[in-house]
């Protein structure tokens, strides 16, 4: 039985997702108290409850204290059962983050699974669908399992209502080394708009172009989605390298000028490109768990975030495996699973 203080480290939903996934993978039960202790609204929010419920469903787990507002839960894992599942998240909660909770356990199950996850696909405080599909899953494929994700319908904040379908073909995990990202191949900037004025997309592209001036004209495009799924706006910036494709994003919301949103996202991409590192912040967080289960591997990355420190600590407690952080000579960072 592992006891976790939910307010430590990242102190939010990530601790819960990691702990649940690790518990299903190791068979080790845990209790967590003081959940989201430092936040304005402490305790479990709806999307956390849904993520933990999803973990319970696929893993035959029992979770007590599982309700909105709860600050303490006990989680007792069962055996992971592959199959077809549907999860729906309210409040435009992220489909990608629920997937993060259940994907690795299902990748290592004894049969294929198909997940339909409904909720937010392009919403704040979570990676967009394109990150899952283009950044994360190709690396998972290199490790063995085949996971495909399709976007049926976009889900923007505040409405949500998006839908992704994920198919998982399990296979044993192989360690991989992700040190060099290879040569730059192409850049792509997409401004998604739905049910809001078209010129917002134009303004975003113009602002992004100022930062990413070396990218050719045809890399910048507007994608207009049906108005009835809106309102919604996302700016997706992809940089494809030989060994990895990174995705940076910005999401429109009321009161946030299009230019500022685009400039922030573009600068993040420019910073990533300049760093020479393999993994951006989201990949850094999401790559740790599969590598830990592969019992080895390493990757270079941008500045180490609090999410990764917290993830490393949880991995250490559940698996006993140590994760090393070090600096590379060119100013990037190296994370190694030993």
């Amino acid at each position: 039985m592992i006891t976790i203080d939910g307010s430590e480290g990242e102190g939010g939903g990530q601790v819960l997702r990691y702990a649940a996934a690790l518990s299903l993978l190791t068979g080790e039960p845990f209790t967590i108290g003081n959940i989201r202790g430092g936040r304005a609204k402490p305790g479990l929010m709806r999307q956390h409850v849904t993520a933990l419920e999803a973990a319970c469903v696929i893993g035959g787990a029992e979770c007590n204290g599982l309700h909105v507002g709860s600050t303490e839960i006990g989680f007792r894992p069962g055996s992971v059962t592959p199959g077809e599942y549907r999860f729906a998240i309210g409040t435009a909660g992220s489909t990608g983050l629920v997937l993060q909770t259940v994907m690795v356990p299902l990748m290592l199950a004894d049969g294929p699974s198909k997940l339909v996850i409904e909720g937010g696909t392009h919403a704040m405080a979570a990676p967009p669908f394109e990150f899952t599909a283009k950044t994360l899953l190709p690396l998972i494929a290199k490790m063995g399992p085949r996971v495909t994700a399709t976007l049926d319908r976009h889900g923007f904040y505040p409405r949500g209502g998006g839908r992704i379908v994920v198919e998982i073909e399990p296979a044993p995990l192989r360690p991989i080394e992700c040190i060099e990202r290879g040569a730059f191949e192409r850049g792509k900037v997409d401004a998604l708009v739905s049910g809001i004025p078209f010129d917002i997309a134009d303004r975003e592209l113009k602002a992004a172009r100022k930062v990413l001036g070396e990218w050719p004209e045809e890399s910048f495009a507007v994608e207009q989605l049906p108005a009835e799924i809106g309102p919604g706006n996302a700016l997706l910036i992809e940089a494809a390298f030989e060994h990895v494709t990174e995705v940076m994003s910005g999401f429109g919301k009321m009161g946030l000028p299009a230019e500022r949103l685009a400039k922030t996202a573009a600068k993040r991409m420019a910073g990533y490109i300049a760093s020479g590192a393999f993994a951006g912040p989201y990949l850094q967080d999401q790559l740790l768990l599969p590598l830990a289960m592969a019992q080895g591997g390493a990757f270079t990355t941008v500045r180490i975030g609090r999410h990764s420190r917290t993830a490393a600590e949880l991995i250490g407690r559940f698996t006993g495996r140590e994760i090393g952080f070090s600096d590379t000579p060119d100013g990037a960072h190296l994370i190694e699973i030993r």
Binding site: K41, G43, M45, R46, Q47, V49, H67, V68, G69, G90, T91, P158, R159, S194, G195, I196, A227, E228, G230, P231, G232, M254
Partner: peptide
């Protein structure tokens, strides 16, 4: 009846949009 309704506060819908109320 268009996308702009999501910019408006509608009490009945808003009850179901609260993170901390299921």
């Amino acid at each position: 009846f268009g996308p702009s309704r999501w910019n408006k506060w509608r009490p009945t819908v808003s009850i179901c949009m609260q993170e901390d109320l299921r």
